[in-house]
Simulated scan of single mutants.
Amino acid sequence: MPGYQTFPYQPGSSDSLGKLTMLKIPALTAKSFLDVGCNEGFFCGYALFDGARKVVGIDINKEAIINAKQNFPGCSFFQQSWDELPPDEKFDVILCSSAMHYAQDQERLIHLLAEKLTQNGVLILEVGVAPGNEAEWVKVQRSIDTRIFPTRNKINSILSRYAYKYMGESSEQIGDPIPRAVFHVRKKKPYAFLLMQGPGAGKTTIRNSFFQEQKIVSGDALILNIASGKLKSDTKLHEVLSNGVNPAKIDVAVRSIFSTGLWKKYLEAVLAVSSGESFVYDGYIPALYHELVLDFFKANGYFSVNLCWDSPYASQDLGSRVKAEARKYSLYLAAVRNKLRR
Protein backbone atom coordinates (compact mmCIF):
# COMPACT_ATOMS: atom_id res chain seq x y z
CA MET A 1 0.00 0.00 0.00
CA PRO A 2 1.52 3.37 -0.99
CA GLY A 3 2.41 5.78 1.79
CA TYR A 4 1.67 9.48 2.05
CA GLN A 5 4.96 11.02 0.92
CA THR A 6 6.35 10.36 -2.54
CA PHE A 7 9.97 9.36 -3.12
CA PRO A 8 11.67 8.63 -6.47
CA TYR A 9 11.70 4.97 -5.48
CA GLN A 10 8.29 4.93 -3.76
CA PRO A 11 4.94 6.34 -4.91
CA GLY A 12 2.71 8.16 -2.45
CA SER A 13 -0.54 10.10 -2.27
CA SER A 14 1.22 13.48 -1.90
CA ASP A 15 3.31 15.30 -4.50
CA SER A 16 6.20 15.79 -2.08
CA LEU A 17 8.65 17.20 -4.62
CA GLY A 18 6.09 19.67 -5.95
CA LYS A 19 5.20 20.70 -2.40
CA LEU A 20 8.88 21.23 -1.60
CA THR A 21 9.04 23.82 -4.37
CA MET A 22 5.89 25.61 -3.22
CA LEU A 23 6.93 25.80 0.45
CA LYS A 24 9.86 28.09 -0.49
CA ILE A 25 12.05 26.85 2.34
CA PRO A 26 14.98 29.26 2.90
CA ALA A 27 18.60 28.14 2.69
CA LEU A 28 19.28 25.77 5.58
CA THR A 29 23.08 25.75 5.73
CA ALA A 30 24.21 25.61 9.40
CA LYS A 31 20.61 26.02 10.63
CA SER A 32 18.46 23.86 12.89
CA PHE A 33 15.30 22.39 11.35
CA LEU A 34 12.17 20.87 12.91
CA ASP A 35 9.44 19.11 10.92
CA VAL A 36 6.20 18.76 12.90
CA GLY A 37 4.24 15.86 11.43
CA CYS A 38 7.26 14.66 9.45
CA ASN A 39 5.69 11.40 8.18
CA GLU A 40 8.49 9.36 6.55
CA GLY A 41 11.00 12.21 6.64
CA PHE A 42 11.00 13.59 3.08
CA PHE A 43 11.50 17.21 4.17
CA CYS A 44 13.92 16.29 6.95
CA GLY A 45 16.01 14.54 4.32
CA TYR A 46 15.94 17.69 2.21
CA ALA A 47 17.07 19.78 5.20
CA LEU A 48 20.02 17.45 5.72
CA PHE A 49 20.80 17.61 1.99
CA ASP A 50 20.69 21.42 2.09
CA GLY A 51 23.28 21.65 4.86
CA ALA A 52 21.25 21.94 8.07
CA ARG A 53 23.42 21.34 11.14
CA LYS A 54 20.58 19.70 13.09
CA VAL A 55 17.42 18.05 11.78
CA VAL A 56 14.56 16.81 13.96
CA GLY A 57 11.30 15.24 12.85
CA ILE A 58 8.34 14.24 15.00
CA ASP A 59 5.21 12.29 14.16
CA ILE A 60 2.62 10.36 16.14
CA ASN A 61 2.62 7.52 13.58
CA LYS A 62 4.94 4.75 14.77
CA GLU A 63 5.38 3.09 11.36
CA ALA A 64 6.15 6.43 9.69
CA ILE A 65 8.89 7.16 12.24
CA ILE A 66 10.41 3.69 11.75
CA ASN A 67 10.56 4.30 7.99
CA ALA A 68 11.92 7.83 8.47
CA LYS A 69 14.81 6.53 10.57
CA GLN A 70 15.63 4.00 7.86
CA ASN A 71 15.38 6.61 5.11
CA PHE A 72 17.51 9.29 6.78
CA PRO A 73 19.75 7.99 9.59
CA GLY A 74 21.51 11.37 9.76
CA CYS A 75 18.35 12.97 11.18
CA SER A 76 16.73 12.58 14.61
CA PHE A 77 13.17 11.24 14.59
CA PHE A 78 10.78 10.86 17.51
CA GLN A 79 7.37 9.28 17.81
CA GLN A 80 5.50 11.89 19.81
CA SER A 81 2.79 14.52 19.66
CA TRP A 82 3.45 18.20 19.04
CA ASP A 83 2.35 18.92 22.60
CA GLU A 84 5.66 17.44 23.77
CA LEU A 85 8.17 19.62 21.94
CA PRO A 86 11.68 19.92 23.44
CA PRO A 87 11.15 22.42 26.32
CA ASP A 88 14.43 24.35 26.08
CA GLU A 89 15.19 24.04 22.38
CA LYS A 90 14.73 26.64 19.64
CA PHE A 91 14.84 26.09 15.88
CA ASP A 92 15.81 28.32 12.97
CA VAL A 93 13.22 26.76 10.66
CA ILE A 94 10.06 24.91 11.70
CA LEU A 95 7.86 23.22 9.12
CA CYS A 96 4.22 22.34 9.72
CA SER A 97 2.92 20.92 6.45
CA SER A 98 -0.25 18.89 5.86
CA ALA A 99 -0.67 18.55 9.60
CA MET A 100 -2.37 21.50 11.29
CA HIS A 101 -5.90 20.33 10.61
CA TYR A 102 -5.26 17.26 12.80
CA ALA A 103 -4.68 19.40 15.91
CA GLN A 104 -7.48 19.70 18.45
CA ASP A 105 -6.58 23.36 18.99
CA GLN A 106 -5.01 24.63 15.77
CA GLU A 107 -4.53 28.21 16.95
CA ARG A 108 -2.71 27.03 20.07
CA LEU A 109 -0.44 24.86 17.92
CA ILE A 110 0.60 27.85 15.79
CA HIS A 111 1.49 29.88 18.87
CA LEU A 112 3.31 26.92 20.41
CA LEU A 113 5.45 26.46 17.30
CA ALA A 114 6.16 30.20 17.00
CA GLU A 115 7.49 30.16 20.56
CA LYS A 116 10.02 27.52 19.51
CA LEU A 117 11.59 29.80 16.90
CA THR A 118 14.98 31.38 17.35
CA GLN A 119 15.17 35.18 17.25
CA ASN A 120 15.41 35.20 13.44
CA GLY A 121 13.61 31.91 12.87
CA VAL A 122 10.75 31.21 10.48
CA LEU A 123 7.72 28.95 10.80
CA ILE A 124 6.64 27.57 7.43
CA LEU A 125 2.94 26.88 7.66
CA GLU A 126 1.00 25.03 4.98
CA VAL A 127 -2.71 25.14 5.73
CA GLY A 128 -5.93 24.41 3.91
CA VAL A 129 -8.01 27.57 3.52
CA ALA A 130 -11.79 27.22 3.66
CA PRO A 131 -14.08 29.52 1.62
CA GLY A 132 -15.85 32.37 3.36
CA ASN A 133 -15.48 36.05 4.19
CA GLU A 134 -15.83 35.74 7.95
CA ALA A 135 -12.96 35.00 10.35
CA GLU A 136 -14.15 31.53 11.31
CA TRP A 137 -13.49 27.81 11.31
CA VAL A 138 -15.35 25.80 8.68
CA LYS A 139 -16.09 22.06 8.56
CA VAL A 140 -14.83 20.58 5.32
CA GLN A 141 -15.75 17.11 4.05
CA ARG A 142 -12.66 15.45 2.59
CA SER A 143 -12.37 12.11 0.80
CA ILE A 144 -11.21 10.38 3.99
CA ASP A 145 -12.80 12.40 6.81
CA THR A 146 -14.26 15.73 7.94
CA ARG A 147 -11.89 18.34 9.34
CA ILE A 148 -12.01 21.95 10.50
CA PHE A 149 -10.18 24.54 8.39
CA PRO A 150 -9.78 28.32 8.82
CA THR A 151 -10.97 30.90 6.33
CA ARG A 152 -8.36 33.32 5.00
CA ASN A 153 -9.57 36.02 7.36
CA LYS A 154 -9.31 33.60 10.27
CA ILE A 155 -5.73 32.65 9.53
CA ASN A 156 -4.90 36.35 9.05
CA SER A 157 -6.40 37.05 12.48
CA ILE A 158 -4.37 34.29 14.13
CA LEU A 159 -1.13 35.43 12.49
CA SER A 160 -1.69 39.13 13.19
CA ARG A 161 0.58 39.05 16.24
CA TYR A 162 3.48 37.94 14.02
CA ALA A 163 5.37 39.24 11.00
CA TYR A 164 4.00 36.95 8.29
CA LYS A 165 3.86 36.72 4.54
CA TYR A 166 1.55 34.78 2.23
CA MET A 167 3.86 32.86 -0.12
CA GLY A 168 1.21 31.52 -2.50
CA GLU A 169 -0.74 28.30 -2.90
CA SER A 170 0.82 24.92 -2.26
CA SER A 171 0.62 22.03 -4.69
CA GLU A 172 -2.79 20.41 -5.07
CA GLN A 173 -3.52 17.59 -2.67
CA ILE A 174 -5.49 14.53 -3.73
CA GLY A 175 -8.68 14.25 -1.71
CA ASP A 176 -8.75 17.87 -0.54
CA PRO A 177 -11.64 19.96 -1.94
CA ILE A 178 -10.02 23.25 -0.82
CA PRO A 179 -6.70 24.86 -1.77
CA ARG A 180 -3.73 24.94 0.58
CA ALA A 181 -1.83 28.14 1.26
CA VAL A 182 1.75 28.65 2.42
CA PHE A 183 2.69 31.27 5.01
CA HIS A 184 6.10 32.22 6.38
CA VAL A 185 5.72 33.35 9.98
CA ARG A 186 8.30 35.18 12.09
CA LYS A 187 8.30 36.76 15.50
CA LYS A 188 7.60 40.48 15.42
CA LYS A 189 10.55 42.65 16.42
CA PRO A 190 10.48 46.16 17.82
CA TYR A 191 11.37 48.79 15.24
CA ALA A 192 14.34 51.11 15.43
CA PHE A 193 13.61 54.03 13.09
CA LEU A 194 16.92 55.82 12.71
CA LEU A 195 16.98 59.49 11.74
CA MET A 196 20.75 60.03 11.58
CA GLN A 197 21.16 62.77 8.97
CA GLY A 198 23.28 65.84 9.67
CA PRO A 199 22.25 68.92 11.65
CA GLY A 200 19.58 70.98 9.92
CA ALA A 201 18.50 68.15 7.60
CA GLY A 202 14.95 68.02 8.98
CA LYS A 203 15.14 65.05 11.39
CA THR A 204 12.97 66.57 14.10
CA THR A 205 10.40 67.83 11.59
CA ILE A 206 10.06 64.34 10.12
CA ARG A 207 9.89 62.85 13.60
CA ASN A 208 7.10 65.20 14.67
CA SER A 209 5.20 64.74 11.40
CA PHE A 210 5.16 60.95 11.19
CA PHE A 211 6.14 59.42 14.55
CA GLN A 212 4.02 61.23 17.12
CA GLU A 213 2.92 58.02 18.86
CA GLN A 214 6.35 56.34 18.96
CA LYS A 215 8.88 56.46 21.75
CA ILE A 216 11.44 59.14 20.87
CA VAL A 217 15.14 58.96 21.71
CA SER A 218 16.72 62.37 21.11
CA GLY A 219 20.45 62.08 20.49
CA ASP A 220 21.06 65.68 21.62
CA ALA A 221 19.17 65.20 24.89
CA LEU A 222 20.81 61.84 25.51
CA ILE A 223 24.33 63.25 25.14
CA LEU A 224 23.57 66.22 27.40
CA ASN A 225 22.03 63.95 30.06
CA ILE A 226 25.05 61.64 29.99
CA ALA A 227 27.39 64.63 30.21
CA SER A 228 25.53 66.12 33.18
CA GLY A 229 25.21 62.80 34.98
CA LYS A 230 21.39 62.81 34.84
CA LEU A 231 21.58 59.52 32.97
CA LYS A 232 23.88 56.80 34.28
CA SER A 233 26.15 55.39 31.62
CA ASP A 234 29.61 53.98 31.01
CA THR A 235 32.23 55.83 33.10
CA LYS A 236 34.55 56.51 30.18
CA LEU A 237 31.69 57.80 28.02
CA HIS A 238 30.61 60.14 30.82
CA GLU A 239 34.15 61.43 31.24
CA VAL A 240 34.54 62.22 27.55
CA LEU A 241 31.20 64.01 27.31
CA SER A 242 31.42 65.84 30.63
CA ASN A 243 34.50 67.75 29.50
CA GLY A 244 32.69 70.74 28.12
CA VAL A 245 29.97 69.50 25.74
CA ASN A 246 28.62 72.50 23.84
CA PRO A 247 24.82 72.19 23.27
CA ALA A 248 25.30 74.12 20.01
CA LYS A 249 27.92 71.65 18.78
CA ILE A 250 26.49 68.25 19.60
CA ASP A 251 27.76 66.99 16.24
CA VAL A 252 31.33 67.47 17.48
CA ALA A 253 30.57 65.30 20.53
CA VAL A 254 28.99 62.63 18.32
CA ARG A 255 32.01 62.43 16.05
CA SER A 256 34.21 62.14 19.14
CA ILE A 257 32.11 59.26 20.50
CA PHE A 258 32.45 57.27 17.30
CA SER A 259 36.05 58.12 16.46
CA THR A 260 37.27 57.14 19.96
CA GLY A 261 35.54 53.75 19.89
CA LEU A 262 32.89 54.59 22.50
CA TRP A 263 30.02 54.14 20.04
CA LYS A 264 28.93 50.80 21.52
CA LYS A 265 28.59 52.28 25.01
CA TYR A 266 26.60 55.15 23.51
CA LEU A 267 24.26 52.82 21.59
CA GLU A 268 23.81 50.74 24.74
CA ALA A 269 22.57 53.93 26.39
CA VAL A 270 20.07 54.32 23.52
CA LEU A 271 18.90 50.74 24.15
CA ALA A 272 18.45 51.46 27.85
CA VAL A 273 16.21 54.42 27.07
CA SER A 274 14.19 52.44 24.49
CA SER A 275 13.35 49.75 27.11
CA GLY A 276 12.89 47.10 24.43
CA GLU A 277 10.08 49.00 22.68
CA SER A 278 9.92 50.34 19.14
CA PHE A 279 11.54 53.77 19.03
CA VAL A 280 12.64 56.64 16.80
CA TYR A 281 16.22 57.83 17.18
CA ASP A 282 16.55 61.53 16.32
CA GLY A 283 20.21 62.42 16.33
CA TYR A 284 23.12 63.03 13.99
CA ILE A 285 25.52 60.15 13.36
CA PRO A 286 28.17 60.40 10.59
CA ALA A 287 27.23 58.39 7.49
CA LEU A 288 30.46 56.40 7.82
CA TYR A 289 28.97 54.65 10.86
CA HIS A 290 25.38 54.08 9.70
CA GLU A 291 25.89 50.41 8.79
CA LEU A 292 27.57 49.82 12.13
CA VAL A 293 24.56 51.32 13.94
CA LEU A 294 22.10 49.27 11.89
CA ASP A 295 24.01 46.05 12.63
CA PHE A 296 24.13 46.87 16.34
CA PHE A 297 20.36 47.24 16.68
CA LYS A 298 19.71 44.19 14.51
CA ALA A 299 21.98 42.13 16.76
CA ASN A 300 19.94 43.32 19.73
CA GLY A 301 16.63 42.11 18.32
CA TYR A 302 15.39 45.21 16.53
CA PHE A 303 14.13 45.64 12.99
CA SER A 304 16.36 48.54 12.00
CA VAL A 305 15.19 51.13 9.45
CA ASN A 306 17.61 53.84 8.36
CA LEU A 307 15.66 56.76 6.94
CA CYS A 308 17.85 58.67 4.47
CA TRP A 309 17.04 61.70 2.37
CA ASP A 310 18.70 64.58 0.55
CA SER A 311 18.33 67.99 2.15
CA PRO A 312 19.65 71.34 0.88
CA TYR A 313 19.46 72.64 4.45
CA ALA A 314 21.85 70.19 6.12
CA SER A 315 24.46 72.15 8.04
CA GLN A 316 27.02 69.63 9.26
CA ASP A 317 29.71 71.28 7.11
CA LEU A 318 28.66 74.86 7.66
CA GLY A 319 30.81 75.35 10.77
CA SER A 320 34.09 74.47 9.06
CA ARG A 321 33.12 76.34 5.88
CA VAL A 322 32.21 79.54 7.71
CA LYS A 323 35.35 79.28 9.83
CA ALA A 324 37.50 79.15 6.70
CA GLU A 325 35.54 81.97 5.09
CA ALA A 326 35.87 84.03 8.27
CA ARG A 327 39.65 83.89 8.00
CA LYS A 328 39.45 85.07 4.40
CA TYR A 329 37.06 87.83 5.41
CA SER A 330 39.41 88.99 8.16
CA LEU A 331 42.26 89.25 5.66
CA TYR A 332 39.94 91.06 3.26
CA LEU A 333 38.96 93.64 5.91
CA ALA A 334 42.60 94.23 6.80
CA ALA A 335 43.48 94.73 3.14
CA VAL A 336 40.62 97.18 2.65
CA ARG A 337 41.65 99.09 5.76
CA ASN A 338 45.24 99.35 4.57
CA LYS A 339 44.11 100.51 1.18
CA LEU A 340 41.98 103.26 2.72
CA ARG A 341 44.92 104.47 4.79
CA ARG A 342 47.10 105.03 1.74
Score class of each variant (00 low, 15 high):
Ser330Asn: 10
Trp82Asn: 14
Ser32Met: 01
Phe193His: 05
Thr205Tyr: 15
Lys339Met: 14
Asp251Met: 05
Arg108Ala: 15
Leu195Ile: 02
Gln214Ser: 09
Trp263Lys: 00
Asn338Phe: 01
Val56Asn: 00
Leu231Val: 11
Leu123Met: 07
Lys215Trp: 03
Val293Leu: 01
Glu291Pro: 03
Val280His: 04
Leu109Gln: 09
Ser274Gly: 09
Asp92Pro: 06
Lys69Ile: 06
Arg53Cys: 13
Gly175Lys: 05
Phe77Lys: 05
Leu23Lys: 02
Ala253Met: 04
Glu63Pro: 00
Lys69Cys: 10
Lys328Arg: 14
Met22Trp: 04
Glu126Tyr: 06
Thr260Trp: 08
Phe296Glu: 04
Thr235Gly: 01
Asp50Phe: 07
Glu239Ser: 01
Lys265Asp: 15
Phe7Lys: 06
Ile206Leu: 13
Gln10Gly: 02
Asn306Met: 14
Pro8Asn: 09
Ala52Tyr: 04
Ser218Arg: 00
Ser233His: 03
Tyr284Met: 00
Asp105Leu: 06
Ile148Asp: 14
Gly261Phe: 13
Ala163Gln: 12
Ser320Cys: 05
Glu63Ala: 07
Ala135Gln: 03
Leu222Asn: 00
Asn61Gly: 03
Glu325Gly: 02
Lys203Asn: 00
Gly128Ile: 11
Pro179His: 11
Asp295Ala: 15
Cys44Tyr: 05
Ala27Asn: 12
Pro247Phe: 14
Arg342Phe: 12
Leu331Asn: 13
Val252Gln: 07
Ser304Asp: 07
Gly3Cys: 05
Leu194Cys: 08
Ala314Trp: 07
Ser81Thr: 15
Val293Gln: 03
Ile158Leu: 12
Val55Thr: 09
Ala163Val: 09
Thr235Ile: 12
Gly45Arg: 08
Leu340His: 06
Ala103Met: 15
Ile155Ser: 01
Trp137Met: 15
Tyr266Met: 03
Ser16Asn: 11
Pro86Gly: 08
Pro11Arg: 11
Gly12Asp: 11
Lys236Glu: 15
Pro247Gln: 08
His111Ser: 12
Tyr284Ala: 01
Lys139Ser: 14
Ser16Gln: 10
Tyr164Leu: 03
Val56Arg: 07
Ile25His: 04
Asn243Ile: 14
Ala130Lys: 01
Gln173Gly: 02
Asp317Tyr: 15
Leu262Gly: 04
Arg337Ser: 14
Ala326Cys: 12
Pro150Cys: 12
Glu63Lys: 06
Gln80Gly: 04
Ser209Ile: 09
Lys188Pro: 08
Ala299Thr: 14
Glu126Ile: 05
Asn225Leu: 07
Asp234Ser: 09
Asp220Asn: 15
Ser160Met: 09
Ile94Ala: 07
